[in-house]
Amino acid sequence: MNKEDAKRLVREAVAEGRHMLLEPEAKALVAAWGISVPKYLWIKAPEDVRVKAEELSPPFVLKVISPDIVHKRDVGGVILGLQDTEEVRTAVHEMTRDLRRSAPEAQIAGFLLVEMVPPGIELIVGGLRDPQFGPAVMFGTGGIAVELLKDVSFRLAPVSREEAFAMMQEVKSYPLLTGFRGSRPVDVEQLASAVVALSDILLSLDEIREIEVNPLIVSESGAVAVDARVVLDSAYTAPGRSIERVSAAKA
């Protein structure tokens, strides 16, 4: 998917009155801006499960895709360490059963089968649209404890590569990136590119209110977006206005 396709995807989601992109859509969007994402298959129906080795190599992670589930882990929507088609099929059945109990109201748009990303340092890159100052980009220590640690740095868009490096240096986990106690330094150039990419996405798509890649797992071999979230601007989802905007954009 290229940038134009990604823009169309966002505008269509807005026209449909949606508030968020689904995970594979959000990943496709950030991938269009050059951020690496793990290989994945979108399983739309449980009977479709057929994993071909040339498409995806194990181990896999299975994740539920739902516009209504914000925290997938909390409702049993993530299963790790799957090895083959048989295990994936079983996992899909178990997850479907569990979700009926833990999230009975949630609409399920399918399942995401993803190649597991080797361990690395968990970071977060995010962005939001401030009513006064416009788009702002965030970089920080990622993972599930983001809001607890609050080890983050902000800049207003447009963010230059130089500013991206300054943002990295402002967070406490920066020494982890440059090689801490014998570990190899990570690919900071790719991290800077990811920060600049989010800045550029926010400047290119007014329809996005919040965007986030968390975790962005980084190691010496690169940075990979393990999860991505895109919140659309609810102002554009008001009836009438969204359609007008989309058609104007298409014209």
Partner: peptide
């Protein structure tokens, strides 16, 4: 907010970014 980014950023964080 629906993201960690939104939840973590008070207005002051954005002001700081603007000053920088």
């Amino acid at each position: 907010a629906r993201s960690h980014t939104g939840a973590i950023s008070g207005r002051y964080e954005i002001y700081k970014a603007a000053f920088k």
